[in-house]
Amino acid sequence: ELREAFRLYDKEGNGYISTDVMREILAELDETLSSEDLDAMIDEIDADGSGTVDFEEFMGVMT
């Protein structure tokens, strides 16, 4: 189920989504998050600083 959700956002099928897209997902899930909260969450999610979120990083957030 998580893989299907990931595929919805990984429109190009390249195995990752951008941190911008991940930020939008988080904002949709919790509309009360401030910009600073979102920045901090993205920094934590994208631990390797690649600017992308792969499936493993995505799973870590969603579980």
Rank of each mutant, 00 (worst) to 15 (best):
Glu1Ser: 14
Glu1Leu: 11
Glu1Ile: 11
Glu1Cys: 15
Glu1Asn: 14
Glu1Met: 09
Leu2Thr: 04
Leu2Lys: 02
Leu2Asp: 06
Arg3Ile: 13
Arg3Leu: 14
Glu4Leu: 05
Glu4Ala: 06
Glu4Cys: 14
Glu4Met: 03
Glu4Asn: 05
Glu4Thr: 04
Ala5Asn: 07
Ala5Gln: 15
Ala5Cys: 15
Ala5Trp: 15
Phe6Cys: 09
Phe6Pro: 01
Phe6Met: 02
Arg7Ile: 15
Arg7Phe: 13
Arg7Ser: 14
Leu8Glu: 14
Leu8Ala: 14
Tyr9Ala: 09
Tyr9Ser: 04
Tyr9Cys: 12
Asp10Trp: 06
Asp10Glu: 02
Asp10Arg: 00
Asp10Ala: 03
Asp10Phe: 08
Lys11Ala: 09
Lys11Trp: 09
Glu12Cys: 08
Glu12Gln: 08
Glu12Ala: 09
Glu12Phe: 06
Gly13His: 06
Gly13Ala: 05
Gly13Met: 06
Gly13Arg: 04
Asn14Gln: 08
Asn14Glu: 04
Asn14Met: 09
Asn14His: 09
Asn14Phe: 09
Gly15Ile: 03
Gly15Asp: 03
Gly15Thr: 01
Gly15Pro: 02
Gly15Arg: 01
Tyr16Arg: 05
Tyr16Asp: 01
Tyr16Glu: 03
Ile17Met: 02
Ile17Asp: 00
Ile17Cys: 02
Ser18Cys: 06
Thr19Tyr: 07
Thr19Asp: 02
Thr19Gly: 04
Asp20Ala: 12
Asp20Ile: 12
Asp20Phe: 07
Val21Ser: 13
Val21Cys: 12
Met22Asn: 00
Met22Glu: 00
Met22Gln: 00
Met22Gly: 00
Arg23Val: 02
Arg23His: 02
Arg23Cys: 02
Glu24Ile: 12
Glu24His: 10
Glu24Tyr: 07
Glu24Asn: 11
Ile25Pro: 00
Ile25Phe: 08
Leu26Ala: 02
Leu26Gly: 00
Leu26Thr: 00
Ala27Leu: 10
Ala27Ser: 11
Glu28Met: 14
Glu28Thr: 12
Glu28Cys: 14
Glu28Ile: 14
Leu29Cys: 12
Leu29Arg: 13
Leu29Pro: 00
Asp30Thr: 09
Asp30His: 13
Asp30Lys: 07
Asp30Gln: 07
Asp30Ile: 09
Asp30Glu: 04
Asp30Cys: 13
Glu31Arg: 15
Glu31Lys: 14
Thr32Glu: 08
Thr32Ala: 08
Thr32Met: 06
Thr32Val: 03
Leu33Asp: 00
Leu33Ala: 05
Leu33His: 03
Leu33Val: 04
Ser34Arg: 08
Ser34Phe: 04
Ser34Cys: 06
Ser34Leu: 06
Ser34His: 05
Ser35Ala: 10
Ser35Cys: 10
Ser35Asn: 10
Ser35Gly: 11
Ser35Met: 11
Ser35Phe: 09
Glu36Gln: 12
Glu36Asp: 11
Glu36Cys: 11
Glu36Met: 10
Asp37Lys: 10
Asp37Val: 10
Asp37Arg: 10
Asp37Asn: 08
Leu38Gln: 01
Leu38Glu: 01
Leu38Pro: 01
Leu38Lys: 02
Asp39Gly: 05
Asp39Ser: 07
Asp39Glu: 07
Asp39Arg: 06
Asp39Gln: 10
Ala40Arg: 15
Met41Ile: 10
Met41Thr: 03
Met41Asn: 01
Ile42Leu: 11
Ile42Pro: 01
Ile42Tyr: 01
Asp43Gln: 14
Asp43Gly: 11
Glu44Asp: 10
Glu44Val: 11
Glu44Pro: 04
Glu44Met: 13
Glu44His: 12
Ile45Gly: 02
Ile45Leu: 11
Ile45Pro: 01
Ile45Asn: 01
Ile45Cys: 04
Ile45Met: 13
Asp46Gln: 04
Asp46Ser: 07
Asp46Val: 05
Asp46Trp: 04
Ala47Met: 10
Ala47Ser: 12
Ala47His: 13
Asp48Glu: 09
Asp48Ala: 07
Asp48His: 09
Gly49Phe: 04
Gly49Glu: 05
Gly49Gln: 08
Ser50Cys: 08
Ser50Glu: 05
Ser50Gln: 05
Ser50Trp: 04
Gly51Ser: 04
Gly51Val: 01
Gly51Asn: 06
Gly51Arg: 05
Gly51Ala: 04
Thr52Asp: 03
Thr52Leu: 10
Thr52Pro: 01
Val53Lys: 00
Val53Phe: 05
Val53Glu: 00
Val53Thr: 01
Val53His: 01
Val53Ala: 02
Val53Leu: 11
Val53Ile: 13
Asp54Gly: 15
Asp54Arg: 10
Asp54Thr: 15
Asp54His: 11
Asp54Trp: 10
Asp54Ser: 15
Asp54Phe: 13
Asp54Asn: 15
Asp54Gln: 10
Phe55Arg: 02
Phe55Gly: 01
Phe55Met: 05
Glu56Tyr: 12
Glu56Thr: 09
Glu56Ile: 12
Glu57Met: 15
Glu57Tyr: 09
Glu57Arg: 15
Glu57Gln: 15
Phe58Gln: 00
Phe58Asn: 00
Phe58Thr: 01
Phe58Gly: 01
Met59Gln: 09
Met59Asn: 03
Met59Ser: 10
Gly60His: 15
Gly60Val: 13
Gly60Lys: 15
Val61Ile: 13
Val61Leu: 13
Val61Arg: 03
Val61Met: 10
Val61Asn: 03
Val61Trp: 14
Met62Cys: 09
Met62Asn: 02
Met62Ser: 02
Met62His: 04
Met62Thr: 03
Thr63Asn: 10
Thr63Met: 11
Thr63Trp: 04
Thr63Gln: 11
Thr63Tyr: 06
